[in-house]
Amino acid sequence: MSRLIRNAVSMLLVMTVITGIAYPLVATGVAQVLFPHQANGSLIEQNGKPIGSELIGQSFDDPKYFWGRPSATAPQPYNGTASNGSNLGPSNTALRDAVQQRIDALRKADPGNTAPVPADLVTASGSGLDPDISPAGAQYQVARVARVRHLDTAQVQGLVAKYTQGRQLGLLGEPRVNVLQLNLALDGLQNK
């Protein structure tokens, strides 16, 4: 029995060194060489300083910006240190109330737009950090953003198209529009 205990303890320590120290450090080293941009968070930089990430969304509720997915993180939306969904059950009336409030907010920002709201614009994402909305969600907002910014709709459509990705490899996942990059491009357009 004492030999078995010695075997077990030394095996655990050896495996900890191999899989818990060597493996992640080698993986970090190789990843930093091969894919430094992705390994460090796909940061968007301006003048050498990070101003966001392509993969992590930000909170928008100003009518001049495209709004992203509602976020259920606490205490603030899009809290990068507390990723989470709402975990509201499908039949919970709190879910229906929250969705209704979001529909009302979108309507208030864009009076006269009575089209049904695309589902992803009024339902909280799983991570609370979703960087994307569906192309339908972007189309719903194009007229509003163009009007508030006094831009030509076609110009806004052009930017939406630029930041829209189709299904990956033409098959996987869903088409999507990166909200932060789109909004940064909109700001960039008018700062010129």
């Binding site: 879910l95 089209a115 709201v117 589902a119 339902t123 994402s125 994307d132 569906s134 869903e174």
Partner: peptide, 29 residues
């Protein structure tokens, strides 16, 4: 079903996956 009475579009189309998107990520649909 409890959202069907609201002004929300849960139908799949070329522009969105539709369906029950609460708790789901856009890229996965």
């Amino acid at each position: 079903p409890i959202l069907h009475t609201l002004s929300i579009d849960q139908h799949a189309s070329g522009l969105q996956s539709g369906g029950n998107m609460e708790g789901k990520e856009t890229r996965f649909g």
